[in-house]
Simulated assay, not measured.
Amino acid sequence: MLVVAGSLLSAIQMLHAQDGKGAAGPAEHSNLADFVHRAPPQPTEIWLRAAGGRIYDNWWDALDRRKPEGTHPAYPGAGKRTGANTWRCVECHGWDYNGKDGLYGSGERYTGIKGIRGAVGRDVNRIAALLRAEPHSYKRELINDEEVQRVAIFVSRGQDNADRLIDLKTGTARGDPVRGAGLFQTTCAACHGFDGRALDWGAAKEPAYVGTEANKFPHEVLHKIRNAHPGVVMINLRGFPLQDAIDVLAFARTLPSK
């Protein structure tokens, strides 16, 4: 069992360390790579919502595609971002899905673009058509029809109303950290460790652990708890009650940030 666990952790760490071009090495054609980038034979509604959330986050990592070149032609001139990141849905619409009326109402992520909250409950095919048309302009060579449907399903039926779950000023998650500890220790800790520091996304002098991210970017962490981080082996809690994810986030904010 120790060998199996060690091998799995090595594979997970390898995928976490990739450069956005998809799984590398032996895992490329493995079940792990299928889990990360492929769809099940009969996708459930729960899977489709989570998969759409990952595409919303970063579609080329989620789908194992090349990064788009240049800045998105519709990215506002007043925006401060350039390059591939401007092709991400989240870059304009935000981790709270409120766009200019939420987290991205000011600062370096401000674009003046509204969020997607108004699209909750809308017809999925209509949303998919909007993603194809200008200003979004996601052509089939970038994201195919089936994948666009996943995004549309997420937009219509997968958004969580973070306004009532996370305090916008303090970032405090309105959950039970004690209950969240039990969920974290029996699921998330398999990869992140009991203290959330087994994986580090930061630099040597500025680490980025679970606790670091949960305190700096609680809305983003909630999105990833619910949908997983695109392009890596990570479970998500989409199939469980939303309160479970909030409780995990509340606990994650108690973990070490250094």
Rank of each mutant, 00 (worst) to 15 (best):
P256R: 09
A23W: 00
W60A: 09
D163M: 11
Y138G: 08
D61M: 05
L8H: 10
Y138F: 15
L130Q: 14
K139Y: 13
V155R: 01
E147F: 00
M1H: 05
P40F: 03
P230N: 05
V4S: 04
L165K: 13
A33G: 10
E146F: 09
G211I: 04
G171A: 14
Q13F: 00
G158A: 02
G239F: 00
G180F: 05
I113Q: 10
A203E: 09
P41L: 10
N58C: 14
A208V: 07
R164N: 13
R150M: 08
L183R: 09
A189P: 09
A203D: 10
L183C: 05
V151S: 00
G112Y: 04
I246R: 06
G22I: 00
A208N: 07
K258P: 05
A33V: 08
G83H: 08
G77S: 11
D244H: 12
P43C: 06
I46P: 01
T44D: 03
F184Y: 15
E108M: 04
F154W: 07
K169F: 04
A39M: 09
G182E: 13
Y75G: 11
R88L: 09
C188A: 06
D176G: 09
G77V: 14
D64H: 13
I55Q: 06
W60M: 06
E141A: 05
H72F: 10
R122N: 13
Q13A: 11
W59L: 08
P26I: 11
L63G: 04
R226N: 07
A84M: 01
V221I: 15
V90Y: 03
K139T: 15
A250L: 06
D34Y: 14
V221L: 14
E213Y: 05
P230V: 02
G231K: 02
Y138L: 06
Q185V: 12
R253H: 12
A27W: 03
A228N: 13
H93W: 05
F240D: 00
E206V: 03
I116Y: 11
S156G: 05
P43D: 12
S30M: 06
G171Q: 13
E220D: 07
Y104K: 06
P230E: 06
A228I: 08
Q149T: 07
D96F: 13
L199R: 03
A198C: 01
C92G: 07
A250N: 08
G102D: 12
D123A: 08
A152T: 00
H223I: 03
Y104L: 07
S7M: 14
Q159T: 04
